[in-house]
């Protein structure tokens, strides 16, 4: 009798726990899926569009986190003599359109590589917001490094 009760008890116990695990699993998945897919890059996309309107900018790559955006400008040819000017022009224009967040502009090749990689991860939804923040901190550090 005791054995049977124990068995039933164990059975119910397992049933409840596995059922519980299942629910827990679903919630956990939903959270991380939401996290990865909801990192909206609207601010970045707008920034890219804005900046590409500039005459001297040939291409742009941008990644955003909430309202902060990091933009790389691709400038080719003789326009490259005026990179400092172009960076200022782009930054002013972006800050006018995005007064709530920080804007960082770069023409450094390394930043382009880092932002392109981040963009890829974001579109593949392989990155969490925390990872994005950490990676952008690195981008920020690289942007401000050097003499």
């Amino acid at each position: 009798m005791n054995m049977k009760k124990s068995f039933i008890f164990l059975f119910i116990f397992l049933l409840l726990n596995l059922g519980g695990c299942d629910t827990g699993q679903k919630t956990f998945e939903a959270q991380s899926a939401d996290d990865a897919s909801e990192i909206s890059q609207k601010v970045a996309e707008d920034a890219e569009k804005t900046v590409k309107e500039l005459d001297r900018v040939d291409d742009a790559t941008a990644v955003s986190n909430k309202k902060d955006v990091y933009v790389h400008l691709d400038v080719r040819g003789f326009d490259r003599f005026f990179l400092k000017d172009i960076r200022k022009e782009a930054k002013d224009k972006l800050e006018a359109e995005n007064p709530d967040g920080t804007v960082e502009v770069s023409t450094d090749k390394k930043i382009e590589l880092e932002l392109t990689e981040l963009k890829q991860k974001l579109s593949d939804q392989e990155i969490t917001r925390k990872q994005l923040e950490d990676d952008l901190k690195k981008v920020d550090k690289d942007l401000k490094a050097g003499v």
């Binding site: 003789f78 490259r80 003599f81 990179l83 400092k84 023409t107």
Partner: peptide, 9 residues
């Protein structure tokens, strides 16, 4: 201030 733009180019 002319050498840095030359490096940029």
């Amino acid at each position: 201030g002319l050498y840095e733009p030359l490096i940029d180019f």
